[in-house]
Structure formats: C-alpha cells, structure tokens
Design a binder for these strands. Structure first.
Lengths: 193, 193
DNA sequence: TCCTTTCAGGAAAGTATCTTGACTAAACGG
DNA sequence: CCGTTTAGTCAAGATACTTTCCTGAAAGGA
C-alpha cells in the first residue's frame, strides 16, 4: 500500500529513460501495450508493473533490468549522468535526423530544458536532409572526422577539434563529403524546432 | 509581415529568458499584464509587442532592451569558427579558473551570447577553487580523462565520453583525483544575455 | 466450494501548459 | 471621416501528464 522508495527509484529511472528517447507517455504506452495513465503511476511510484510489462518497457527504452534495479548509488537525482555507452540512438523523430544521420541524445527532452544536446553522427557522404531555420543559437564541436557546414549560403570546412557558433535563424544544414564518419557534439538553445 | 526574422530572434530570447526564470507563460503574463496567448505569439514571432509591454517584459525577465535587440552579425561573419589550435587559453579571470585549471574558450565572449562554452582542462590533482551557484543550467561532456563532479554535496565519477547536466543553482565544483589531465567540454547558459 | 483480498492494469475525467484563429479597439495615414 | 494596421484579448484546441475509480484474475483461506 505504502510506496517504498524502491518504486519511486525505478519509476524515476523509467522516466529518465523515456525522456532520453524523447517519447511521451502515450507513445511509450502504445509501443509497450499499456495505458498512459498506468505509466504515469509507474513513474511516480504509485503502482508496480509486472515482470512481463517491465521487460517490455526496458526493451522499448533501450535499457535492461539490472540497470533499473541497481541501487541508486546515492540518491541525488540533481545531476543527470548519461554514460558513454548508454545513449539512445535516434534515427528518426527529429527534424535534423535524416539521410542516415544518427543522433545520440545527451540530455533528455523536457519542457523546462534550456539546452538540447546531441551527438550528430554523420556518415561518409551523408548529411542533413534539408535546411532549416528557427529561433535561438547553436554551437558545435567536432569530436571526430570532418564535415561541411552550410549557413546562410556560405560553406565552411570544419575539422576535428574545431568549434562553431551561429544564429539558428539563419538557414543551415551540413554534409560530409569525406570518406569517414564524422561525430559532432551539437548544442541548441532554446529547444524550439 | 515586415521583419519576420527580427521577431523570431526577439521571441527566442524572450523564451530563453522566461525559461531561465522558471516561469510559465501564464505566470509571466500575469506579472506583466498581458495574456498567455499573446506571449505565446510573441515567443514564436507571430506577433509584436509594444514598447511599453516589451519594457515590462524585460524588467520582469531581468534583462534589458539592448540585449533583446542585439543583432546577429551578417553574412560570412554569421558563423564563428574557432579552430582547434587557435583557442584563447584563460588561466584566470573566470570564476571557475583556479588551482591550475585552464579554460580554452570555444566561443568568443559577446554580450548577445546565449551560451558560454569552454573546455576545462583539469590537471591531475587539480580542481575548481571553490563551490559556486548561479542561475541557469549546465552541461558537460568529457573529451578525455576522468574527474569527480560535486553537486549539492554529492560526488560522482565522470569518465571519458560521459555527459552530465544539472541546475546551476545547486552549489557545484569539481576535482581531478587521477594521475592524468582531464579535458571537459562545458556548456553554461548565462543568466543574462 | 465459496468468499475475501490483492493488485496489475484500464477508462476516462481532470489539470497544466502552450498554440491558434477569430475578434476588438485604438492608432494612423490620407 | 474612413479604411487599414495591429497590439492585444478571448476562448477553443492540442498535448502531456495525473488521478480517481473500476475490473478481472489470481491467490489465498477456511
């Protein structure tokens, strides 16, 4: 009847995983076959899921049971850490994702978020599907490889270790003419597409 | 539909400032004396505010007019690129710089900047001088090495490729207990433009 | 066997936030 | 005056999440 912290802890992890995937309760519920309301209860520790449902959940959320049940190392949810091997990879569902570009989400997507940060993995000969413009500013840092950034009609070659910065209202896009995959850490603010 | 771009730019800044204050459209509207709906339109560049309303807005949002109206540079200068070998290195003059920590500035410091991004080079056995707290949110990505992040009195080991983010209002600092230098890409959303 | 209890999960109403389209009233140009 | 803008309101709508109440199946007793 009472809700021991165990439920709250695993609920919080479920929520975190879901936000990282950029899913709403309804979307996740549809994929897993449970209702929005039940998921809400789960995330807030007001209900428990069966093992079967939990299994489907961790699969849909790209996690595993042991991660879910791992004792919260210390209990402070104040800092969110996304470990190197544990980032959800999004191949679609983002304006920018297309033409084989894969995004690795580094911060969960939530309404009060000021920043939106992903690693854009641009395959050789790949690029953004088209040019977009919106509010805010953006920044990038090339972790590996090189690519061509196109902003407001001007092209620039950006290489490993280089950083760039521009206003999001200018039409922008990119492509990778090289023979190797490029990995770019990309920061947007504010997250309005 | 004269200058849609300007409206979008200002709108984005307004939204950013509002999120920084943690206000909803309704709350801000109540303080300033306009409706939720109108604010929504403003933030999305679908309407313009009068000077009077704008003035009340910047006051409520703790900004000023000139920051709102600051324009992004035009043409080729629109994109700022900082090449890998050409970053200014700051050994002092920054709140965070101390105890041998060196900052490599990735974006030039300008008044209209929404983001502040540096690579923190934390030497072995080095760390931030003390704990600070301010407005906004911050994010980091470990380029190399490992270090210990301390937020709200709670410690976490962060390794290469890991990412983290937290609310800047929590007291935070870091140190490097390891034997090798750590390089962390650090993103701050400054409380003012 | 019957009765009770428990609980995973559903249905749907409720709440909060943001968006949008239709409208109004005041300013402004001629 | 009169037509045109336009800053701003109003209310409906779209999402996303929460909560209350209900059900049906399993698991006990006794």
């Amino acid at each position: 009847m009472e809700t021991p912290d165990a439920n709250v802890r695993i609920g919080a992890k479920l929520k975190h995983a879901r936000l990282l995937m950029g899913l709403s309760l309804a979307e996740l519920g549809q994929r897993v076959g449970v209702t929005e309301g039940f998921l809400s209860k789960l995330e807030n520790g007001r209900s428990q899921a069966s093992i079967g449902t939990l299994h489907k959940l961790v699969q849909a959320l790209d996690t595993n049971m042991s991660a879910l049940f791992a004792e919260a190392p210390e209990g402070e949810a104040a800092v969110t850490v996304v470990r190197a091997g544990e980032r959800p990879r999004l191949e679609a569902g983002h304006v920018r994702a297309g033409n084989n570009v894969v995004l690795e989400r580094l911060v969960p997507h939530r309404p009060d978020q000021l920043l939106q940060i992903n690693i854009h993995v641009i395959p050789a000969k790949g690029g953004s599907p088209d040019f977009i413009s919106h509010g805010g500013q953006e920044f990038g840092y090339v972790l590996a490889g090189a690519f061509t950034l196109v902003v407001d009609g001007y092209e620039r070659q950006i290489g490993e270790g280089d950083a760039f910065y521009f206003d999001s209202s200018l039409p922008h896009g990119y492509r990778n003419d090289s023979e190797v995959e490029a990995r770019v850490l990309w920061v947007n603010t504010p997250p309005t597409f």
